[in-house]
Amino acid sequence: MIDELQRVTIRDERIITEKMAKVQESVADADMVNLSHAVSEMMRRGHVAGDDVAAISERVERALVSKERKMEEMLAAADDLRLMTLTSIVDDILTPIQAVHFLIAVLELRLRVHDWGKRRDEQR
């Protein structure tokens, strides 16, 4: 059962990864490149007026809205896959007592990683 779950999870991870790569590539699509060139050209000419910056900023924001939405969809898909995997392990594979021990171990790991991160941040 674990082997089958692993196969399904790996397949679904691959699909999500491929979609995410396409979303990331779209951040540097023709619209964004053209906007970047327009700003660079204005800066080279020294013509960076407030109205120009505001107009370009508005165009950038509009271009990024759909890209942000797609990234949010990919994050939701990854979260759904994690939840599906966890649910399958707990409900379908482990016995109830094994599930309890597994969930305790997961929580302990999460708490340790959180603590390590906090300590590392404090040291910086």
Rank of each mutant, 00 (worst) to 15 (best):
E41P: 04
R44I: 14
R44C: 08
R44W: 13
R45D: 15
R45L: 14
G46V: 05
G46Q: 09
G46H: 10
H47F: 03
V48T: 08
A49L: 10
A49K: 06
G50M: 06
D51W: 08
D51P: 04
D51T: 07
D52L: 07
D52W: 15
V53P: 06
V53S: 09
V53F: 12
A54H: 06
A54S: 07
A54E: 05
A55P: 12
I56W: 07
S57K: 08
S57H: 14
S57Q: 11
E58M: 08
E58Q: 09
R59D: 11
V60Q: 00
E61F: 07
E61K: 15
E61N: 14
E61M: 01
R62W: 07
R62S: 05
A63D: 03
A63M: 10
A63F: 01
L64C: 01
L64T: 01
V65C: 03
V65T: 14
S66V: 07
S66H: 08
S66T: 14
E68L: 14
E68F: 13
E68W: 12
R69C: 10
R69A: 15
K70E: 04
M71N: 04
M71K: 03
M71H: 02
E72D: 14
E72K: 09
E73C: 05
E73T: 06
M74W: 01
M74C: 03
L75F: 08
L75I: 12
A76H: 00
A76R: 14
A76P: 05
A78E: 10
A78F: 00
A78W: 01
A78Q: 09
D79K: 13
D79Y: 02
